[in-house]
Simulated scan of single mutants.
Amino acid sequence: MNLSKEAQTWKERLEAEYDLSDSGAQVLLLTMCEAFDRLRKCQVAIKKDGQVVKDRFDQDKPHPLLSVERDARAQLMQALKQLNLDLEVTPHPGPGRPPGK
């Protein structure tokens, strides 16, 4: 496992805060961290190159890594959701779902 320092720190903090000791949670956590690293690498390249690049015919086109960035973000969010670590937009007091939902 070759995670960036940022992803490794995030993984360790999540393992310390939550019970993620079973093998399924470990696979999801690793997948999430790999997606996080992929997302960060895409963000760096897109920032460097711009969101629009020229193709071989000198025509503007979206940066090819935009779709990879989107997919990595979706994979990261899905893993968070499967680990029950997704954040609520409007927090409510106490555990579980808010009343009426």
Rank of each mutant, 00 (worst) to 15 (best):
M77T: 04
R70N: 01
V68F: 00
P99K: 15
D55F: 11
L66M: 02
K5M: 06
P95W: 09
R13H: 09
A7M: 14
G96Y: 11
L20I: 05
Q78W: 01
K41F: 13
L39H: 10
H63V: 00
E88I: 03
K47R: 10
G24L: 10
E88Y: 02
R40A: 12
A74W: 07
P93M: 08
L30V: 00
A45S: 11
D22L: 13
S67H: 12
T31Y: 02
C33A: 15
M32S: 07
K11C: 08
D58S: 08
E15F: 04
P98Q: 06
S67C: 03
R73K: 14
K54G: 09
G24Q: 06
G24M: 07
L20N: 09
V44S: 15
L28C: 05
L66Y: 01
Q8G: 01
K41I: 14
H92C: 07
N84L: 14
S23A: 06
H63F: 03
Q82P: 12
G94P: 05
P64N: 03
V53K: 02
G50E: 03
P91K: 11
D19R: 06
V89G: 10
L30H: 00
V52D: 04
G100Y: 10
V27T: 09
E17D: 04
C42W: 02
A25I: 00
E15V: 08
H92N: 12
Q8L: 06
A25D: 06
K41R: 11
L65M: 14
V68H: 00
R40M: 15
